[in-house]
Design a protein around this nucleic acid. Structure first.
Lengths: 190, 190
DNA sequence: CTAATGTTGATAAAATTAATATAGATTACA
DNA sequence: TGTAATCTATATTAATTTTATCAACATTAG
């Protein structure tokens, strides 16, 4: 299972543009974006070019120009971005609703793998088509605030608190998902 | 989102071996498998080699040799096969429980994209770690029977009924998923 | 013995993804 | 007006992954 680098960069850029917007920063230059997100500049330009072509972002050209969201964040569905950049949500094309392609198997209508992958596609779509950029930005900013970390494009703010990790620390806590976060307007897992 | 060809072939092979087992056929040669599933033979060998190394299948060597399942089908979890062949279930490595890798983003613990992808990973795992080869084989054979299609490795049986598709036929019906199928022991969507 | 089959490792070809380069257009502001 | 910062658009290269092929060997039924 994989999201391409391009898809990842596109989403990270949109999230950053969304945060910038929330923080009252009207636009970001490619180099600001590339630096702050540690993305390769010239490759990023291509991604932004594509997002612009699809109408998700707009630009102010010339000196002091940059990119900004072209739509309200609630209208930017994550699933659509993935479809645009990566082609489909389903793990295999024969299970894709929007980018269906015939598979090599002898009898697609009786393929157990395909049946399974249709469910996986539905599970993925269920998440990615439910959330919009607005949700992601909201959750990200909330978590930053809760942990007392300076928000991007903010003048001052405490830096992240130093944390000592236990020996068996698993970097991926299932409770770190966005669902748990959205369900919980205040506390968080700690 | 993508499952690699290798992962697809591995799963299709296991399903076929499972059906063979159910039909009383003790083993399948690579060429039988490749032909019946229309897979490239030599590439398939590599996949089977990997499955064998991990203990999912075994071989009978020499003339009239071939491959067969090394474990009861209920012990072969689909998620584990995908992990073995494709590395992980999560769309990005920083959201993977079993194959975690640090991402390039400046602050992983406050990355909205990662939070979202953790949910996607969980949704995928929720399906792929719940089902075993046994479920897939069961559902596949049931659907074949219901549609009066000859089962593989069976002497006789009606051929698939001719069907006229409507103009706007969408080849992917969400109801064709394995969940709906398993929930329904008899009827099917028709 | 021998023909069919699996084993193993090497390698090559193709496709996709990722990244860089280049030439040009636009704009703010000195 | 000039120029430096910036986006636009396309082309090219590099890296990686996927797919496929090759070849020499080992095993086994008959």
């Amino acid at each position: 299972m994989n999201l391409t680098r391009k898809g990842e960069y596109a989403l990270r850029s949109l999230i950053k543009l969304g945060i910038a917007h929330e923080m009252g920063k009207s636009h970001l230059s490619v180099s600001e974006l590339a630096q702050s997100e540690k993305l390769p500049l010239k490759f990023l330009e291509q991604v932004l070019y594509q997002l612009r072509g699809a109408g998700y972002i707009e630009t102010k050209r010339g000196k002091f120009g940059g990119y900004y969201l072209a739509l309200p964040m609630v209208q930017i569905r994550i699933g659509d971005i993935v479809r645009l950049i990566d082609g489909k949500l389903a793990p295999i094309a024969c299970a894709s609703l929007t980018a269906y392609e015939k598979c090599s198997c002898p009898d697609e209508t009786h393929c157990g793998l395909r049946m399974l992958m249709i469910d996986v596609r539905n599970a993925i779509a269920n998440i990615l088509d439910r959330y919009t950029l607005s949700d992601i930005v909201e959750v990200t900013m909330r978590k930053l605030r809760r942990d007392g970390v300076a928000l991007p494009f903010e003048k001052d703010g405490k830096s992240a608190p130093a944390v000592t990790l236990p020996e068996d620390f698993n970097p991926v806590d299932p409770r770190d998902g966005i669902m748990a976060e959205l369900a919980n307007k205040t506390g968080g897992k700690s």
